[in-house]
Deep mutational scan, measured.
Amino acid sequence: GPREVTMKKGDILTLLNSTNKDWWKVEVNDRQGFVPAAYVKKLDSGTGKELVLALYDYQ
């Protein structure tokens, strides 16, 4: 199956793709996968990378 990404509340993840309104593709610890968009919030990183903050645990 697809590689699952797990996250804990407060984690910072790299946002790869947010074109789908329900599932965003993120990368964390060299793993890529989809997380519910409602579970993360975009951060203003000030760099080229888009980052998101995990609002809830997800696994």
Score class of each variant (00 low, 15 high):
residue 32 Q to C: 11
residue 50 E to Q: 15
residue 39 Y to P: 01
residue 14 T to V: 15
residue 11 D to G: 03
residue 5 V to G: 03
residue 23 W to V: 03
residue 4 E to V: 14
residue 52 V to P: 00
residue 37 A to W: 02
residue 34 F to N: 03
residue 5 V to A: 05
residue 31 R to Y: 10
residue 19 T to L: 08
residue 37 A to Q: 04
residue 8 K to C: 09
residue 3 R to D: 13
residue 3 R to P: 11
residue 5 V to F: 15
residue 51 L to Q: 10
residue 4 E to R: 14
residue 27 E to H: 05
residue 13 L to E: 00
residue 20 N to P: 04
residue 51 L to I: 09
residue 26 V to Y: 00
residue 14 T to Y: 10
residue 8 K to M: 08
residue 29 N to C: 07
residue 58 Y to M: 02
residue 28 V to D: 05
residue 1 G to R: 13
residue 31 R to W: 15
residue 50 E to K: 10
residue 49 K to I: 12
residue 8 K to G: 04
residue 41 K to I: 13
residue 17 N to W: 06
residue 10 G to S: 02
residue 54 A to T: 03
residue 18 S to M: 09
residue 33 G to K: 05
residue 12 I to F: 05
residue 15 L to Y: 02
residue 47 T to R: 06
residue 15 L to D: 00
residue 39 Y to L: 11
residue 30 D to I: 03
residue 24 W to A: 02
residue 49 K to N: 10
residue 34 F to V: 06
residue 43 L to K: 03
residue 27 E to N: 04
residue 4 E to S: 14
residue 33 G to Q: 06
residue 49 K to Q: 13
residue 28 V to I: 15
residue 33 G to T: 09
residue 45 S to T: 13
residue 6 T to H: 12
residue 25 K to Y: 15
residue 14 T to D: 04
residue 19 T to E: 14
residue 53 L to F: 06
residue 59 Q to K: 11
residue 22 D to Q: 11
residue 36 P to W: 04
residue 12 I to G: 00
residue 48 G to K: 09
residue 14 T to R: 10
residue 10 G to V: 01
residue 36 P to C: 06
residue 30 D to P: 02
residue 44 D to H: 12
residue 12 I to S: 02
residue 50 E to A: 12
residue 13 L to R: 00
residue 15 L to F: 02
residue 25 K to D: 03
residue 1 G to D: 12
residue 36 P to T: 03
residue 6 T to D: 10
residue 19 T to S: 14
residue 26 V to P: 00
residue 11 D to V: 04
residue 18 S to K: 08
residue 16 L to M: 06
residue 3 R to V: 12
residue 15 L to Q: 00
residue 29 N to I: 05
residue 44 D to F: 11
residue 13 L to Q: 01
residue 17 N to D: 15
residue 27 E to D: 05
residue 28 V to L: 15
residue 37 A to D: 03
residue 52 V to M: 04
residue 5 V to L: 15
residue 38 A to K: 13
residue 52 V to S: 01
residue 38 A to W: 10
residue 10 G to R: 01
residue 56 Y to Q: 14
residue 20 N to C: 09
residue 58 Y to P: 00
residue 57 D to C: 05
residue 46 G to D: 14
residue 44 D to M: 11
residue 51 L to P: 00
residue 25 K to T: 06
residue 57 D to H: 05
residue 13 L to Y: 07
residue 19 T to P: 03
residue 19 T to I: 08
residue 17 N to L: 07
residue 36 P to L: 05
residue 17 N to P: 03
residue 27 E to R: 07
residue 1 G to T: 12
residue 8 K to Q: 08
residue 33 G to M: 15
residue 1 G to Q: 13
residue 46 G to R: 07
residue 46 G to A: 12
residue 41 K to Q: 15
